[in-house]
Structures are given as structure tokens and as C-alpha cells.
């Protein structure tokens, strides 16, 4: 199965693991998807190799960025009516607090779904959802026939 077929299958069966299992970088990141109260939530399972600053210790900003970007892409795939692999045009990550050595969660909200481009806002948190550790805003191209 290619990526598009796997997405179609996962949406049909609601098998979220099938979506992420095929992506090597998702395994490296410990990334998985869960449904929390009907919302799609991305999770990055804590592992020592995600640390960027061992003195604190704190998660690497790049790992948090990858969690936010992945969550945004899967949110688009989950909501979309047709299967087009979103391509990141750009993403801006604001780092609000240092990421502690814990599991990290992220939730993407589609702020504008245009014909060619989707704008997504994503928030990442750890133990307390009211204290986000990072925010991202990204634009993703959704052009049929791509990818």
C-alpha cells in the first residue's frame, strides 16, 4: 500500500496506528495519534534521545517542532474529503516553556481550509493542557496529484 491507500484504510477502519506505523521518522520520534473526546491528538512518547539540553533537562526544540508539524499534517489528512498529501509551505513555532522529560501532546485546529492551502494552528502541552509549551502556525499545500 502507498501512503494515500493507507490513509484511506485508516480512515475507514479508524485504525490510527496504521497511519503512523509506516512513517520511519514517526517511530524515531515516538509519535502516535489518539482520539481524546473525539479530538485527534498527536503524542510524542518521552525518550532520552529527544533531549536537547541535558542540564535542565529539556526536550530539543526540533523534536517539539516535528511533533507540531506532524500533528498538523495528520489533522488535515483526518479532516479532508479527498486524499492529498499536504506539503508544508512554512511553519512558525513559538516556544513558550521548556519541554520537560515527559510525554508531550499536540492538537491541531484548521483555521482556514482553502482550495490550495490550509492554515493550521497547533498547540503542544505536557501535564497541564492550560499551560502550553509551544504553539505553531503553518501553511500546507493540498494540490491533487502531488505526492
Amino acid at each position: 500500500m502507498n501512503v494515500a491507500e493507507r490513509i484511506a484504510e485508516a480512515r475507514r477502519t479508524r485504525d490510527l496506528a496504521a497511519l503512523t506505523d509506516a512513517v520511519p521518522y514517526a517511530a524515531f520520534l515516538g509519535f502516535s495519534l489518539t482520539l481524546l473526546d473525539g479530538e485527534l491528538v498527536g503524542k510524542m512518547r518521552y525518550a532520552d534521545h529527544l533531549i536537547g539540553n541535558p542540564a535542565l533537562p529539556a526536550l530539543h526544540g526540533g523534536a517539539i517542532g516535528a511533533l507540531l508539524e506532524s500533528t498538523a499534517i495528520f489533522q488535515i489528512l483526518w479532516d479532508a474529503e479527498t486524499i492529498v498529501l499536504p506539503k508544508t509551505v512554512n511553519i512558525t513555532v513559538d516556544y513558550l516553556r521548556s519541554g520537560r522529560p515527559l510525554d508531550t501532546f499536540a492538537r491541531g485546529i484548521i483555521t482556514k481550509h482553502g482550495r490550495r492551502v490550509v492554515n493550521v494552528r497547533v498547540e503542544a502541552w505536557q501535564e497541564d493542557r492550560t499551560r502550553p509549551i509551544a504553539l505553531a502556525n503553518g501553511h500546507f499545500l493540498i494540490l491533487p496529484g502531488d505526492g
Binding site: V23, Y25, A26, L29, G52, H60, G61, G62, A63, G65, A66, L67, E69, S70, T88, I91, V93
Partner: peptide, 11 residues
Amino acid sequence: HGGAVSSLMDA
């Protein structure tokens, strides 16, 4: 993955 490129650029 874009995340690998963003980790590189962040570092």
C-alpha cells in the same frame, strides 16, 4: 521528514 530538517536548522 520536515521535522528532521527543522531539528537541523534549530541546532
